[in-house]
Write a protein that binds this DNA or RNA. Structure first.
Lengths: 337, 337
DNA sequence: TTGTAAGCGTTATCAC
DNA sequence: GTGATAACGCTTACAA
């Protein structure tokens, strides 16, 4: 069987390959009649231009890169699922690489993506200004992340305010001793920091117990052991908190497990509230209250942002979708005293 | 700055581009001295051959396709993570599409993958013989799945025997009334069926209560509502089972939630055992006992199988890694009566 | 062992 | 509006 390429289509349509190319790309006007003829043959023979040839001839790659953290996190997995979905919708394919937090390793991954002909890549790791500058200097590939301005996610502000409001909500229920578990990364102003800021702001504003020992800090990886050692410090038997905010659902589930093993009841003895809104949060016992992120919306913004980096065309998202919802479930109740 | 392509490297190495190509691909012997010279210049200028040009010139695509089910399932997510990792290691990129179970939709996805120049694709959906035949007839792209012989996963047999053994274990603990929740797909002999077969075999062999009403069946999607309606039928208050096997961790977690809401205690009133070994199983309360699948091993086999389909080279996996481990945790205990 | 040159399937720049 | 044709960066006969 003959190969169905642009030459074949041209022959069948009785025109030149240049014309076929023009029809495909709408790059130059073609008479209506001829255009119809070409489209019909393309349909008839189910022709698809070779993306490799297109690329060689100077077109962009239609491939987006993604750097995911090696630590398997529900929220990320979900986010990527949507990212992939939107990318497909826009006619793009996604190439993922998993990677540890070291900068060297990220550079290695970037190099691999660049080899694949990828022009724009999204990193789930935030990047410091120096890192971004280094990449800009040494790579052709453009890198962006959650906090890149092109994404228009307002993520820092949204994180801070939603946590602030959630803690206020707990206070309204009557909680006075509210603990918090946070995660710190090396970036100066990250959305993870913002969660803590929102928490602290609420604590200090509403005149709650400001007990330093009720605030725990994780660093990067959230191994079971480190989670437990943090939570142990918060739960001093003399005066445990009556409510606990946790920066992520995943960690919160771990924490709830520990709390219940110690014999405390949730929410009778202690309420737990966390952040992310992963599907599992609603399935564990007791079901976990959480601030759910607009994952789908975020994915859309990210893809639009990446495409902007790719072709310079702005595709604004409706800001209305960017809502962080406080979902109160069984893990939150009134304080018992 | 000059473009660093094969011509550039050839010039700097003082040889022809053919030689450079031969060094890159080890396709024909090149004298040691010249080879070294070429490799050095490649290193020096950090040259990477354009995969697009390579492809156009007849090489395979170095891209693998993956069809994932639209239903977000932990095990799948984990599996894909490893698939991606191994694919990368072998120098391949992965393109994923999510898809519903309809055949038409799968065909659509296959077409998209084919357009991207992908030659081999793995489907998380099983395919009936007719479907496979249809695809073979109408597509260039090769499709495989969990039960394809190239994968050498023995998955049906392994599923059956591991469930059989797990149920035997429950019986040894003294459980006489063991319920089961299964999932049925349209494929005649699927590994999901095998789980049920293993269960039934154990039940009938060890002379346990053979109460039909203690066996529930899900169909395809595992929405919360359908899970609950199945579990409700199993738990008739008169004589509930003392142990329950569930075909997947994800559903088991949902089921445990329901059971505890009804006021039963796990494992005192009822033991729960399931299948998959997702990370969350160990994190919920009570921690879920499960038959953990060798995900990493499976991913390796799958990639090797796909590469075999791609280039005909066999890359056998050590069969030893193919172990299904019964992990007993807090959700399983002795029957109380 | 090495070099020359003909493809691979497009796009884009010219002419007409 | 349309058709030649060079160019994209590589692989691979074929020739030397």
């Amino acid at each position: 069987m003959e190969n169905i390429d642009i030459k074949f289509i041209a022959k069948k349509s009785e025109c030149s390959i240049a014309t076929v190319s023009r029809v495909i790309n709408r790059s130059k006007p073609v008479s209506e009649e001829l255009q119809k003829r070409v489209i019909d043959t393309i349909r008839k023979y189910n022709y698809n231009p070779s993306i490799y040839a297109q690329n060689l001839a100077g077109k962009k790659s239609r491939l987006l890169g993604f750097i995911m953290t090696n630590y398997i996190n529900q929220y990320q997995l979900l986010l990527f699922r949507y990212l992939n979905e939107f990318a497909c919708k826009m006619g793009y394919g996604c190439i993922i690489r998993y990677c540890n937090s070291g900068f060297e390793e990220k550079l290695e991954v970037l190099r691999e993506l660049e080899i694949r002909g990828i022009e724009v890549c999204f990193s789930l790791f935030l990047l410091s200004q120096e890192e971004e500058a280094y990449i800009k200097e040494h790579f052709r590939i453009k890198v962006c992340h959650m906090q890149s301005p092109e994404m228009r996610l307002n993520i820092i502000e949204k994180n801070e305010s939603s946590v602030y409001e959630a803690v206020c909500y707990l206070a309204q229920l009557g909680h006075k001793r509210i603990g918090g578990i946070f995660c710190i990364d090396e970036i100066d102003d990250s959305f993870l920091m913002a969660r803590k800021r929102g928490f602290l702001k609420a604590i200090s504003q509403i005149n709650l117990d400001q007990d330093e020992s009720m605030i725990g800090q994780l660093h990067g990886e959230c191994e079971k052991d480190s989670v437990i050692s943090v939570i142990e410090k918060i739960f001093v038997p003399q005066k445990p908190p009556t409510a606990l905010f946790c920066y992520s659902d995943e960690v919160a589930i771990e924490v709830m497990s520990w709390i219940m093993k110690q014999g405390y009841r949730i929410p009778e003895d202690i309420s737990v509230l966390s952040f992310d809104g992963i599907p599992f949060a609603g399935r564990v016992t007791p079901s976990l209250s959480t601030i759910s992120q607009p994952v789908e919306y975020q994915a859309k913004c990210i893809i639009n942002g990446m495409l902007y980096l790719q072709d310079g065309i702005e595709r604004p998202c409706d800001e209305k979708g960017n809502e962080y919802l406080l979902q109160i479930r069984d893990s939150v109740g009134l304080p018992s005293h």
